[in-house]
């Protein structure tokens, strides 16, 4: 039963996008996933409006001090099993803002991260690749 559940999860990943202070570049690239050129709905991926509905949290941007408690709250609002993808180099290391006084740190110092997708901004193909890496991780969890 558990194995079947994971199979269904892999074929129906619902994504919630969270901007933690990015320049909006990565967000535009992530929203482009739903367009007819990239069409992630064919893989069962759907962008949802509430973290309660989501399986995957895609976080963009270096986390500003203001956004740190909000990011933690959004992560806590997601039902288990939940996964986090970091989109863009800002979230991985702080990017060009690495030594800013306003940063609460890269994302993995605040919530656990499953997949890192680099790029400035990250391309939609790269995010799809990140989703496929997440599916590989799911398969490993099954076995």
């Amino acid at each position: 039963m558990r194995l079947k559940a994971n199979k269904a999860l892999g074929r129906s990943l619902w994504v919630y996008l969270c901007n933690t202070g990015s320049c909006n570049g990565c967000d535009i690239e992530c929203v482009a996933l739903g367009t007819s050129r990239y069409d992630v709905e064919r893989l069962g991926v759907k962008i949802v409006g509430s973290p309660r509905h989501a399986d995957v949290l895609i976080v963009t941007g270096p986390v500003t001090r203001k956004m740190e408690p909000r990011l933690r709250m959004i992560y806590e609002q997601m039902p288990d099993p939940r996964f986090v993808i970091v989109a863009g180099v800002c979230g991985m290391s702080g990017g060009m803002f690495y030594d800013s006084y306003a940063l609460a740190g890269p994302i993995d110092q605040i919530i656990p991260v499953d997949v890192y997708v680099p790029g400035c901004p990250t391309r939609p193909e790269a995010v799809i690749h990140g989703l496929s890496l997440l599916l590989e991780k799911l398969e490993k969890m099954e076995s």
Partner: peptide, 16 residues
């Protein structure tokens, strides 16, 4: 002009 999800996508969604 998208490809779209498979026919049984709602079943996967509900099962998940």
């Amino acid at each position: 002009s998208r490809i779209g999800p498979p026919l049984f996508q709602p079943f996967f969604d509900v099962l998940k």
